[in-house]
């Protein structure tokens, strides 16, 4: 497999798409990692759905105890942060490190919103005496969201690292793979939540 870019017949509206690469933006290694992560969650999602089959009433009953408004805020926060990250990548591609850093910090701020809201939800449930052993629904709810929560935190650490490097003028028009790598991971965190939100909070 060659990694070289080939000139594609660009349509006029796509003036900038002169080259269509064989590989997604960012380091290939992060994509291998992303694939593995996606697989883990796919298994978890499927396990949730199939276990629910045998406990429909239990799942419906306890789904009602979740705070859907908090989940809405969190979904909007993650989508917004993903949007910001994407704008950060644009800035990096144009060689504007200062803008890139600002967009990334804004994305991290949205991540903080997510963490705070999610923590409040956890505090509420734990305060009500809910644990992994309470019932199967809560087991899945806590496991899935907490595992995702850890990914949000890891993603934020990565974004902060990229933002700091951008602040120090660490990227250029030629070399901004680092920004794309961090961005790809963060978009994955968003992607996972997009399935998790309807599955756990809405679908019944």
């Amino acid at each position: 497999m060659s990694n070289d870019m080939k000139i594609s017949s660009a349509t006029p509206g796509d003036a900038q798409r002169v080259a269509a690469p064989n590989y997604p933006p960012g380091d290939l290694a992060i994509w291998i990692f992303i694939l593995a992560e996606l697989l883990v969650f796919a298994v978890f999602f499927a396990a949730y759905a199939f276990t629910r089959m045998n406990h429909v009433e239990l799942f419906n009953e306890y789904q009602a105890t979740l705070n859907r408004d908090a989940a809405l805020i969190n979904t909007l926060a993650l989508l917004t942060s993903s949007y910001f990250v994407m704008r950060g990548v644009v800035a990096a591609r144009e060689g504007n490190n200062a803008f890139c850093a600002r967009w990334l910090w804004a994305a991290v701020a949205m991540g903080v919103v997510f963490v705070v809201v999610k923590s409040a939800e956890y505090a509420h449930h734990l305060g009500a005496g809910v644990s992994l052993s309470t019932n199967t629904f809560y087991m899945f709810y806590l496991s899935l969201t907490f595992f995702h929560f850890m990914h949000v935190i890891l993603g934020m650490v990565i974004l902060v690292a990229v933002a700091v490097k951008a602040r120090g003028d660490g990227y250029s028009v030629e070399d901004h793979t680092g920004v794309e790598t961090g961005a790809s991971y963060w978009h994955m965190v968003d992607l996972l939540w997009l399935i998790l939100f309807p599955l756990v909070y809405v679908m019944r």
Binding site: I32, V40, L132, S133, F140, S143
Partner: peptide, 22 residues
């Protein structure tokens, strides 16, 4: 051990072949 380990253990260890495959 608590029952949730049935799930945690199954799901995560089912993915242990991945690093070996890599």
């Amino acid at each position: 051990a608590p029952e949730y380990w049935q799930w945690w253990g199954s799901i995560f260890s089912a993915l242990e072949p991945i690093p070996f495959f890599m």
